[in-house]
Write a protein that binds this DNA or RNA. Sequence first.
DNA 1: AAAATTTGCAACCGCCCATTG
DNA 2: TCAATGGGCGGTTGCAAATTT
Length: 289
Amino acid sequence: MGRSPCCEKAHTNKGAWTKEEDQRLIAYIKANGEGCWRSLPKAAGLLRCGKSCRLRWINYLRPDLKRGNFTEEEDELIIKLHELLGNKWSLIAGRLPGRTDNEIKNYWNTHIKRKLLARGVDPQTHRPLNAAAADHHSQLQAPRRFAAAAASAGHPHHHPDHFAVLSNSPEACSHSSDDEPSSATPPPPPRHLGIDLNLSISLAPYQPQSEQLKQEEEDDAAATTTTTASGAGSNATAVCLCLPRLGLHGGEVCSCGRGGAPSMQASTHMFRFITPLGGGHNSTSTTMT
DNA sequence: AAAATTTGCAACCGCCCATTG
DNA sequence: TCAATGGGCGGTTGCAAATTT
């Protein structure tokens, strides 16, 4: 379609932000709040693109950011969430208060990937490296399935690329209904794709992959709406995975059953799973509405 | 001590979807 | 209904700092 650029690039600064620019941005947002990013630079007296201002604020200047090293708990949570969601950094960030998607993405690429490789786990598939190499069908397993479920259920970022990894055969893509007017009733996705909105998920402590897969197979076979609550012990926190905005901050009470994106109103399944975060967090039973 | 290489992360880019008029 | 706009996302790049040779 050829969109106009988000701002007048010719007269904007690029590269690292100066202290003065930071101060201007902070002062402006403190006074006026976050608002129209496009007009903000001009109003704040900044020679920056609005998107650049937004990123600077969200990723660096926001007062609620928790800077510093990631804890071991955060590491494990990121790994688990990545296993469930794939590279949905914003969704993952939503589960880690004070962390930004950009920060988590960078941390993943620089630290966690290596950590998983050292464990002998493939960072993309979360399966043992040798198994991942031997079995290309491993691409069809849970994390991708869940991402696909979220996307097909209306997540705004169902980029075609994300579906490309779901199947080795293009015709198996589940998002093609719009592109296939001839098929009045789209056939159900091939069973091996396992795209199942009633997916059972959990954030139990690390479990050997073989057992995990076994559990998934059982879950698939059952095809029930139950929610696995393994690890729902004393130190567990309910993590809402309401679609399409998976994740609430800091264990807030879920309220998205009513709302969410308009496109999701017909599908307001609520997923919750239990993640052991070790201390201080409320224990909450799993629900599914 | 200097040069080369690697690492980590802030920032940018291009694309997408939702909203609005 | 449609085009323009705004905001958001994931992927990539560029560069400074750290490490190795």
